[in-house]
Amino acid sequence: MYRILHKEALSEVTKLMVIAAPEVARKARPGQFVIVRIDERGERIPLTIADYDREAGTVTIIFQEVGKTTMHLGTLEPGDELATFTGPLGHPTEIENYGTVVCVGGGTSIAIIFPIARALKEAGNRVISIIGARNKDLLFWEDRMRAVSDELIVCTDDGSYGRKALVTEPLRELLEQRDGEIARVWAIGPAIMMKFCALTTKPFGVKTIVSLNTIMIDGTGMCGGCRVQLTDGAKFVCVDGPEFDAHQVDWDLLLARQRFYLEEEKLAVERWRHQCQLEAQLTAAGA
């Protein structure tokens, strides 16, 4: 069992947790992930290792409440324990001094891009970061991102904070204005955002790295459920990735595969909400 030590809400739908997992912390590196299962009946879901502290023996995860498991996770409190916390899985991010790099983070993934941006900065890169969210309330860590970036562009879809734009707009402008200067782009966020970042950078021929969030079960190459189609064949995200060259990914297939369990996911959420309501009523009745 893996104890939750600390919990924090980063935005309305995004939570951070620090988990006691000394063995995982010992080996963790930026870009890797863990598989989490809440309890006996829980499903296994992948979450990126957002940070780790080898001395304290802790691993930080940050998640967006999008379905049953992440919503359930969001209700747990420090002192509660997780049944499964397997990792570190996948390959670490390849950090080198590339020159000038752009880090794009969308929504919850701002938390995922942060340690990558920090590592790139530490490796001597000039880091330009773009962070975006649907609205102001979903944004977080602007200060942290600013601290590890030479330049920071903040945007929201609805213009409630920073620039009113999708992250792809400033990305395109940067590529146009600084032709030849930008060596690499990291884009991490919802699949649809990553797809459009890939389309944006492609004409400029700038290598773009994305971290794919497919459906997973084991996370060790055993099931093939996480497979993606790249131009050079099918790959398993859990063992061959999770980071890939964005220009090689068949995005439409990826998006379709993410939707495969949509009906079941909806059912699970309804059932979960119903359960929570019942519990709330019972507690209210008892009190």
Partner: peptide
């Protein structure tokens, strides 16, 4: 790679282990 093509491992793991 279409949805609905899966390895026996994935199918059986979902059914049995999970």
């Amino acid at each position: 790679n279409y949805n609905g093509v899966l390895s026996a491992n994935e199918f059986l793991t979902r059914v049995n282990l999970m």
